[in-house]
Amino acid sequence: MRILVCLIGLILTLTACGKQDQSYIPSVAVNYQAPLTDPRLSRLNAIGGSVTVPGGVSGIIIYRASASSYVAFDRCSSYQPERRCAVTIDDTGLTATDPCSGSKFLLSDGSPVKAPATRSLRTYSVSVNNVSIFVYN
């Protein structure tokens, strides 16, 4: 009887671990670099400016938060990321919207401001020198 109980417990443990949580944005290597003079980055010349660039899971958004700081986020929505819906920058330049779910995210920190999303966008590190901008993880 003791062996039967142990065997059933082992089977339940092994089968319970079979399903993985799909609710996180996948981690991929990011190493984007561009000269600050690149015309595609011209919107970053002003505070509150943002651009989309290739990389990450669904692309990257770079946002100029202040005169000396930039933030970068993966465009992959944090709501049902397995769908890989790329958020788009809104006309206001303050938020980005997931076209699949209607979720909205602040560009200043990536946090959700409209349901159904409850998690922030994946962030990447940003550094800038006098010549180039670097986005990496």
Rank of each mutant, 00 (worst) to 15 (best):
S78E: 08
C76T: 08
Q22S: 09
T97W: 05
A86W: 01
D38W: 02
N129G: 12
A67D: 03
R43E: 09
V53L: 04
L36E: 02
S42T: 04
V53E: 06
V131N: 15
I62A: 01
L10V: 08
S78L: 07
A115L: 12
N129C: 09
L94R: 10
T88A: 11
A16H: 11
T37I: 05
L107R: 04
D74R: 04
Q22I: 06
G93D: 07
L4W: 13
R40H: 14
I11T: 11
I3H: 10
R83F: 09
V128W: 08
L14W: 05
R40M: 09
A67C: 03
D91V: 15
L4Y: 14
A72D: 00
L94H: 11
L4R: 09
G48D: 10
R40T: 03
Y63W: 12
V28H: 02
R2S: 12
L41T: 03
D90M: 09
R43W: 03
D21K: 03
V30G: 00
S103M: 13
V30E: 00
S108N: 13
L7R: 14
G102E: 05
L10Q: 13
A72I: 01
V131M: 10
F134E: 07
S27Q: 08
R40V: 06
C100R: 08
T123Q: 14
P81Y: 04
L94N: 07
M1A: 11
R84Y: 15
S58P: 02
V126N: 01
I11D: 06
T52P: 10
A46P: 02
G9C: 08
Y136R: 09
N130V: 08
L121T: 13
Y70V: 00
T123M: 11
S132W: 06
T52Q: 13
C85N: 09
R64D: 00
S50F: 08
Y136I: 02
V5T: 15
G48H: 00
P54Y: 02
F73K: 07
P26E: 04
Q80W: 15
P99S: 07
Q22N: 10
A29R: 05
P81I: 07
A34C: 02
S58H: 15
S78F: 04
D21S: 13
V71S: 05
Y79C: 07
A96D: 02
S77A: 11
G49A: 04
G56N: 00
C6D: 12
S103Q: 09
I8D: 12
D109T: 09
E82I: 14
L121S: 11
A96I: 04
Q80M: 14
L10M: 14
T118H: 15
S77M: 07
G48V: 03
A29T: 03
G93W: 02
A117W: 01
A34T: 01
L107M: 14
F105Q: 08
Y63D: 03
P116N: 14
G55R: 02
C6F: 14
G55Y: 05
T13K: 13
P81F: 01
P99W: 03
Q80Y: 14
L44V: 01
T123W: 13
Q20H: 12
T88N: 15
I25H: 00
L14Q: 12
N137Y: 04
L10C: 11
Q33C: 05
P54Q: 09
